[in-house]
């Protein structure tokens, strides 16, 4: 039985695509058959983050237009072959696809994969409706900012109205030092408003930007990072494991942080 999970947020730029790429990769690393679907027609990014841009031949719209078979459009990952990508069309807009068609597409994929991860576009219009139509579960990505939390709240309401009951929260780009100084919303503050179960907290990390630009999700990195570990943990929790939440409080001496910063600047 495969699980269809939509990754959504309402607001743009909070890390939906990064989360989808990393979770897909982390699950594939654990031997699961994973398909990640880019539902952001017209503004596709997921192929970039996975470093698969140059392998895209057909897109989801080509499949729906009958120009190719579904299998032809799937792009196999170069590192973990159990991870596949269904790319979005870049030359069309979100209105090119209807929810019914999207549902058909996802249902055709559920047979062959353990996980179907749908990367939802920002907003709550047609693209959002397309992305959630076939999903049974949802991961809400938000950053600890009021605008992102407000939009996430709206999206949770819409998901509930669309009968998606299993909704879990990922708080992305948390900066523990700022939380400690009372300059940023804490995990508890966000949870107080959204009131849905938390599945992971990802600290803000410059290396995410580097990994994005290189097309190598952070969970693949040899050098362990807090953000990468956080994504790994979320994947394990999705699998039903109980994993303790990481201690993200700021170390008193700050030596480790400084060392890591020095290290990463030298490398890149």
């Amino acid at each position: 039985m495969s699980r269809v999970i939509v990754v959504t947020s309402g607001k743009g730029g909070v890390g939906k695509t990064t989360t989808t790429a990393n979770l897909g990769m982390a699950l594939a690393k654990r031997g699961r058959k994973v398909i990640v679907i880019d539902a952001d027609f017209g503004l596709r990014n997921l192929d970039l983050l996975l470093g698969l841009e140059n392998r895209v031949v057909y897109t989801a719209v080509d499949v729906l237009a009958g120009q190719c078979r579904l299998e032809q459009a799937l792009v196999k990952d170069k590192r973990y072959p159990t991870l596949m990508l269904l790319p979005a069309a870049q030359n069309r807009t979100k209105d090119a696809v209807k929810p019914d068609q999207m549902k058909q597409l996802v249902n055709a994929l559920t047979k062959a994969f353990n996980y179907v991860l749908v990367d939802c576009p920002a907003g709550i219009e047609m693209g959002f409706q397309n992305a959630i139509v076939a999903a049974k579960e949802a991961l809400i990505v938000t950053t600890p900012e009021i605008a992102a939390v407000r939009d996430a709240d709206r999206v949770i309401g819409l998901l509930e109205a669309n009968n998606i009951k299993q909704v879990r929260l990922i708080i992305n780009r948390l900066r523990p030092a700022m939380v400690q100084a009372n300059d940023m919303m804490s995990v508890a503050d966000v949870q107080e408003i959204l009131a849905i179960p938390l599945i992971g907290v990802v600290p803000d990390d410059e290396r995410v930007i580097v990994s994005t630009n290189k097309g190598e999700p952070l969970v693949l990195s040899e050098i362990p990072s807090l953000a990468g570990t956080a994504f790994d943990n979320i994947a394990r929790r999705l699998e039903g494991e109980t994993v303790e939440f990481m201690d993200l409080s700021v170390p008193n001496d700050g030596l480790l942080t400084r060392l890591r910063k020095m290290f990463s600047t030298k490398l890149f």
Partner: peptide
């Protein structure tokens, strides 16, 4: 109504 009224509600 027994519900949480979320943003936009």
């Amino acid at each position: 109504l027994q519900t949480t009224l979320r943003s936009g509600g």
